[in-house]
Design a protein around this nucleic acid. Structure first.
Length: 207
DNA sequence: TTTCGGATTCACT
DNA sequence: GTGAATCCGAAAT
């Protein structure tokens, strides 16, 4: 029933570019979680935000290395998963060279495989386009949490992987400012990218 | 040790 | 469109 997923694992060099360059390239990539409880879950990424290193006040890395954000400072191609608002997990892909604190936040996706599991986990979702239409919704639907912080996405046996299945990123992605940042703390940078007119994109500022 | 505020979501008006 | 829920990490004391 489920269509066979064919795709190649992206290599380290793909992730090594800076976050602003990497972010739009992640659009239309496939995020797969081999969930020990639910089997294979997969989504197609449709919305991302770039967080760029030490000079970006909106980035967790702005205030330097801490135990929480250590994955951001590590080598590219790993997951950075953090807890926020006392109840939500958000997942990032680490970008840039080892030692730089840059990452791309995965904000929204389109369900591909395991939709029944996602509907169960996202009971509040009224429609399938609400299953992954926000950074914390995405992690909840896929079952990602703090235990996945630091996962190497480039390992073929990793529980979480990012695949290129041949669908290219949009040639003209929509670009806006980032969501949820305080005024003057990096909210002015146009570093949010999403697939134009995709119904799974989160409800952010004017699109 | 205490305080502060958050890369959000959901229910409700 | 508005506000409550909810708790951890980091900064301040």
């Amino acid at each position: 029933m489920a269509a066979r997923l064919i795709g190649r694992v992206l290599d380290r060099g793909f992730y090594a570019r800076d976050a602003r360059s990497l972010a739009p390239l992640l659009l239309n990539k496939i995020l797969v979680h081999h969930d020990p409880d639910a089997g294979r879950l997969a989504v197609r990424i449709v919305e991302v935000e770039a967080y760029a290193g030490a000079e970006d006040e909106g980035s967790h890395g702005f205030r330097g290395l801490t135990k929480r954000n250590a994955a951001m400072f590590g080598p590219p191609g790993h997951l950075y998963v953090y807890f926020t608002y006392g109840m939500h997990w958000c997942a990032n892909v680490v970008a840039g060279e080892d030692g730089l604190s840059s990452a791309v936040l995965l904000r929204a996706a389109a369900p591909v495989t395991g939709i029944e599991t996602m509907r169960t986990r996202r009971a509040a979702a009224r429609t399938d386009t609400d299953l992954c239409s926000g950074p914390a919704r995405l992690t909840q639907a896929l079952g990602l949490a703090g235990g996945h912080d630091g996962t190497d996405l480039t390992l073929t046996r990793a529980a979480v992987r990012l695949l290129d299945d041949g669908v290219p990123p949009p040639t003209d992605p929509t670009v806006t400012t980032r969501v949820g940042l305080r005024s003057g703390r990096g909210d002015e940078y146009p570093w949010r990218f999403f697939v134009p007119d995709d119904p799974n994109v989160s409800h952010g500022p004017k699109q």
